[in-house]
Amino acid sequence: MAEELKMITTWSQAVCEMRLGAGRQEGGSRKVTLTVGGEETLPFLFKEGALPHTPLIAVEIFDVPQDDEPEALRRDLRGISKDPVTWAKAMVEDIGADLVCVKLAGIHPDGANTSAGQAVNLVTKILGAVDRPLIVLGCGEAGRDNEVLPLVSEATKGERLLFGDAVQENYKTLTAACIADGHNIIAESPIDVNIAKQLNILISDLGMPLDRIIINPTIGALGYGLEYAYSIMERARNAALSGDRMLAMPFICFVGQESWRAKEAKVPASESPAWGDQRERGIMWEVVTAMSCLQAGADILTMRHPQAIKIVKSEIQELMKKAQS
């Protein structure tokens, strides 16, 4: 048991609350709607202020199969990851993911180059199969994302989904679409608190309310810049709680994407016997990265491995129990 908090700080401002998903009465079709943010203090310091919402886990799924998927993920997702709709449904219903993050990697012109119609179709199908809010990500190629994401946004108008990522060089099209269709937006900055703040100002200048922006501070996995990401998040959250409205947004951390890119998560035991079983190693890499992000103030974690999701979800529930005690 950690030592009791001895110094109580009174902060001047809470983090914005972001609502995800709209039910029938609000013009959407979500049976489950969620809220993140609203923190009045630093992570898990329940004695110091309210932490009204439990951090969420979104499962990351892809529209088209990924060639470079590590063995442990490929094996454990066998049978579900071929079809994104089945994948999404299974991870929500069987594993307990709070929401689904669909990455439209296939629309990339150098990749599968699937059509905008296919993307719209897929997102609509997933919306029909799961009753929770979605996160919709483009492929990262600005031109293509600006063609496709507004169409997906329009087709899901009123569902209050979360779209990403807006970056400093390319935020106007996506912001305009999200404002028009009632969605939230992810503002991504390259582990840089100054750019995070600037991008929030730029997006809000277009008319996006501050409580519909979430910060993707960009993280590195354990051993790959996690400590740097941690200090950026800590600095932003301190400023937010001290009254800086332009940083008072919740955080989304792309844990799965980063941790499964780490050598330690990917290299098979045959290549590096001393490191032990790759499956176990990869899962722990994702879990430790996720737990660290939570301690830095993450509100949404996007994750990949079912076992890692289960472990982190149960740890979150343990941590949040102290809110009641």
């Binding site: 100054n194 703040k197 600037q198 100002i201 730029l202 600095r235 932003a236 409205r245």
Partner: peptide, 18 residues
Amino acid sequence: KAIYCDSYIEAYLKSKLK
């Protein structure tokens, strides 16, 4: 006392006008 960004003056005033 405030985190830098290119529009820091605007950010300061926006933060004030809650």
